[in-house]
Amino acid sequence: MIETVNLIKDFGNFRALAGADLTVPDGSVYGLIGPNGAGKTTLIRHLLGVYRQDDGSVKIAGEDVWENLHVKSRVASIPDDWFFYPQANIRDMMEFYRGIYPRFSVERYEKLKAAFDLDERRPIRGFSKGMQKQAAFWLALSCMPDYLILDEPVDGLDPVMRRQVWSLMMSDVEERGTTVLVSSHNLRELEDVCDHVGIMNKGRIVLEHSLSEMQDNTVKLQVVFEEDGEGIVSSIPALHVSRLGRVYTLIMKMSAQEAVERLAPYKTLMVEALPLTLEEIFIYEMGGSDYGIKDILV
């Protein structure tokens, strides 16, 4: 399990993490989402043992991460700007990782060669951004990690390669019980692969659930009232209300059944519960955290 408790980090006068509590169950694929500057990358760097927290704790498999070689040898990461030695090719980097990661598998590396159509003797600096990302995945998966921590990992990959790397990671999750934490702004993609989601804002995890739980707990209702509904909707606890003609769209933080029961006392012509996408949940949750879409025309 990956766990941070009351994680605090200041950069000078700026508080980047303000008591972040994160829990990633073992064997899960956890999507960490949040607006720009929410503290996702800072949190990830704590999980990798790069940053040391000012307060709170950062644990993986029950052990503190900072200067813990045993834990760090079980973690592989792909940061948003992956570093490789300027003169190195993939083979050189493989030799380097092999000498550093005790569980590095050359056999796996050779097997993965077929999945990534890359010339391992060509300098990595000559690769496109997407090819460099592929190289990073190739090496990270060859480290045989128990924990895979990814920051904007599929940025720059073409759709086919995206599917390829997700498929490789999913097979690792299935076969080896690898825990994956992935930070991304591509919510559509996360929705397909994640079983847990954490929403981060202003240095805190504001919402953390399994994806199904999250979708069950937030509902989108389309309602048509017999009479004027303005007075009714103002008395209902909704995250968001919009109206198109006589059709009201309500986003409510409760189960569909609960929401329908809430509307039962009112005369309605139509009540329809629709499933929410992760993107909608994010947008409406963040709207509640003062990060809503502003109707500003310039």
Binding site: R45, L48, G49, V50, L69, P79, D81, F83, I100, P102
Partner: peptide, 14 residues
């Protein structure tokens, strides 16, 4: 920064 990030994320003690 990129080099620091890579080096300190590796399973090597300071």
């Amino acid at each position: 920064p990129r080099r620091t990030l890579m080096m300190h994320a590796l399973p090597l003690s300071r």
